[in-house]
């Protein structure tokens, strides 16, 4: 590290603060909104000092939304559970299918392997709305509409290509000699995959899994069309806060805070694996 002057450090601090404020402001504002009532939120000019209330959170957790027009049932906790269940299961299925497939694409050049890999990637090219109508019709015929299995299946369109292509790159980065060395030592190809390839690509798999989880969590369109109230994730469930007596900004904010918490926690937890993945590159070769 070169010697830095005091001025340089101050300027750097100011620049960093600006960036952090710019990116964190919406989240901070939503966090503050979640502790306010609709009246204080809509006050003009907006005020930084208010009397915090936990009413929004109690409404979400108890599932009773009290408005001027009466009491509404809100299935937010159910939605949150749906989100967790759908995202976790989808990513798990994608990892189970995608990681071995990525290994096959990385290590074995068979006839048409590039075409198959590209076809899988192309699932991400088509706009979701384009495939939704035929998909809905098929799902209704097959009895998959409004089922968890149907939704998890559709979520593979989001998760599988992502995991496949990211993890494939990580497998390709492992020098083939390392795997050869293990096999020559007397281990089967499956043992080599389990003991050498998987641990070495581990950070990549973690990163891909995390990204896929966030994409699945944030999905809106597929869930909106293919799931009814009891299977809806939070992204769709938040629509319920637009009531006949107005938009419940306080509850929406509280719902957002609650629904970003799992992804945020996961990202913070996975961070050390991602960093480890970067430093692992130093020992290659």
């Amino acid at each position: 590290m070169e010697h830095t002057s005091l001025l340089e450090r101050i300027l750097r601090g100011v620049a960093l603060t600006l960036v952090v404020v710019f990116f964190m402001f919406p989240i901070a504002w939503i966090f503050m909104m979640s502790f306010q009532t609709n009246e204080t939120i809509l006050r003009i000019p907006p005020q930084l000092i208010f009397e915090p209330t936990l009413a929004n959170y109690t409404a979400l957790i108890t599932g009773k939304l009290v408005t001027a027009a009466g009491t509404l049932d809100i299935a937010f906790m159910r939605n949150l559970w749906n989100s967790v269940f759908l995202s976790v299961t989808s990513v798990a299925v994608s990892l189970l299918l995608g990681v071995p497939a990525a290994y096959a694409f990385a290590r074995h050049k068979f006839r048409g392997s590039e075409d198959i890999a590209f076809t899988l990637l192309s699932f991400k090219f088509a706009p979701a709305l384009l495939v939704l109508l035929p998909l809905t019709l098929y799902f209704q015929k097959l009895g998959l509409a409004n089922t968890y299995i149907g939704l998890i299946w559709v979520y593979q369109l989001i998760c599988l290509p992502l995991i496949l292509w990211i993890v494939r790159g990580y497998f390709e980065d492992i020098p083939a000699d390392i795997e050869y060395a293990y096999r020559i030592g007397g281990h089967s190809w499956f043992a080599t995959f389990r003991k050498i390839a998987l641990p070495l690509a581990g950070p990549g798999i973690a990163a891909a899994g995390l990204l896929a989880f966030i994409f699945a969590w944030n999905n809106f369109v597929f869930a909106l069309v293919l799931a009814s109230a009891d299977k809806q994730p939070v992204t769709v469930g938040a629509l319920a806060f637009i009531t006949s007596s107005g938009i419940q900004y306080g509850q929406i904010s509280a719902a957002i805070v609650l629904s970003i918490t799992p992804t945020l926690a996961l990202a913070l937890y996975a961070q050390r694996y991602l960093v480890e993945g970067l430093s692992l590159g130093a020992v290659k070769g």
Binding site: P175, Y180, A181, R183, I184, G186, P199
Partner: peptide, 20 residues
């Protein structure tokens, strides 16, 4: 015959040690 059944010892030019 697959590599693991040939009963061979091999040392690589780039060592090919398992980094983990």
């Amino acid at each position: 015959v697959d590599a693991e059944f040939r009963g061979i010892g091999m040392a690589f030019q780039n060592f090919a040690l398992f980094p983990h």
